[in-house]
């Protein structure tokens, strides 16, 4: 049994917004081992991006703790935190803005090497070439500026930069959503190769269930700052146990015109994270809601060893009835 790389313990993140409060993340716990790809899916405002930023210490939780290889990140500050960042890196959605437009690719790749004091000044050029090679780019790309690169190439550079400190954890926030469909496969394959080749764990934040299905080993479905269902990818996709998961999966368009959707789509909009409803957050859109659902927030409970669902009716309602 290997120890988890990442453990998040009851993460809460609230933002003040004028007189009110945005409840972005409302108590999320998860753990991740090497070689695992955890997909975090959900709609806008479900808190998945905020959670991602907290996992790599780009944001601090209001409550709760993130442990990286057993070490509590919130205990670190200043230079110690900066040095520890080598171990966990983020890949951003828009490669067009995640690279400094005035820096060459080489400069962007040298930045982590310098900050984490990896290699000597002399062999850093060599290391930059190695990084470029790892993401399938020729060495001469080191001299180019981001605006001379296509979206797919920029995203490779961003991945190379994240790899510079030999991290154990990568958090990718919608890494292919901004890319053209025909170049997505290049980046997805690159990420799959990285997982297959090393002792790396990946948190893959996405709204694209097709990509998630291809790359992830586990899925966490988020709704209004909470995980409503988590489990092995195949199980969650083929036999969802939470009514929201079901609604989400039914809403995903299927690229097959002969199998058009027959179920009526989920009604309503994702609710606002400013005014949290009492009880289950999904109650207003849930076709199976009963009075008890409004009484209290349902706990995330294990329904099988690897599987947890936050629905008080998960025992009475089977997947087929959802």
């Amino acid at each position: 049994m290997t120890a988890p790389i990442l453990e998040a313990d009851n993460i809460v993140r609230h933002f003040p917004a004028g007189a009110s409060t945005v409840h972005a993340v409302n108590g999320v716990s998860l753990s991740l081992k090497a070689g695992e790809v955890l997909a975090v899916v959900g709609e806008s405002g479900c808190g998945k991006s905020t959670l991602g930023r907290i996992l790599v210490a780009l944001d601090r939780p209001t409550k709760g703790a993130v442990r990286m290889n057993g070490a509590d990140l919130s205990a670190l500050t200043g230079a110690a935190l900066r040095k520890s960042r080598a171990g966990f890196q983020m890949i951003f959605q828009d490669p067009g803005t995640s690279l400094n437009p005035r820096w060459t690719v080489g400069q962007s790749l040298r930045e982590p090497l310098e900050n984490f004091t990896i290699g000597t000044r002399r062999d850093r050029a060599e290391r930059v070439r190695d990084l470029l090679k790892r993401v399938g780019l020729r060495p001469e790309f080191a001299e180019r500026y981001p605006h001379e690169l296509s979206g797919g190439q920029k995203q490779r550079v961003a991945i190379a930069r994240a790899l510079a400190g030999s991290p154990r954890l990568l958090v990718a926030d919608e890494p292919v959503s901004a890319l053209d469909v025909s170049v997505r496969a290049q980046v997805i394959n690159l990420l799959s190769d990285l997982i297959a080749s090393g002792d790396l764990a990946l948190v893959f934040i996405s709204h694209d269930i097709g990509v998630v299905a291809h790359i992830s080993t586990r899925i966490a479905v988020m709704y209004l700052g909470r995980i409503v269902e988590i489990g092995p990818t195949a199980d969650v996709l083929h036999a969802p146990r939470h009514p929201y998961t079901r609604g989400l999966l039914d809403a995903v368009p299927v690229p097959d015109p002969e199998q058009r959707r027959t179920r009526t789509p989920l009604t309503g909009d994702p609710p606002s994270p400013i005014d949290l409803p009492a009880g289950c957050a999904f109650v207003a859109r849930c076709p199976h809601a009963i009075d008890a659902c409004r009484a209290s927030v349902p706990e995330l409970r294990a329904v099988s060893p690897a599987r947890s669902v936050a629905c008080i009716r998960s025992e009475e309602i089977s997947t087929d009835e959802l």
Binding site: V181, S182, R184, A185, Q186, I188, N189, S192, A196, D208, I209, G210, V211, V212, A213, H214, I215, S216, T217, T233, A234, L237, H238, L249, V252, V254, P255, D256
Partner: peptide, 18 residues
């Protein structure tokens, strides 16, 4: 390049056609 979420996980580990 368009992945079908119902079947994509069966082929996990296989490379996508680039």
């Amino acid at each position: 390049a368009t992945l079908d979420h119902r079947t994509a996980n069966d082929a996990r580990g296989e490379r996508l056609v680039e």
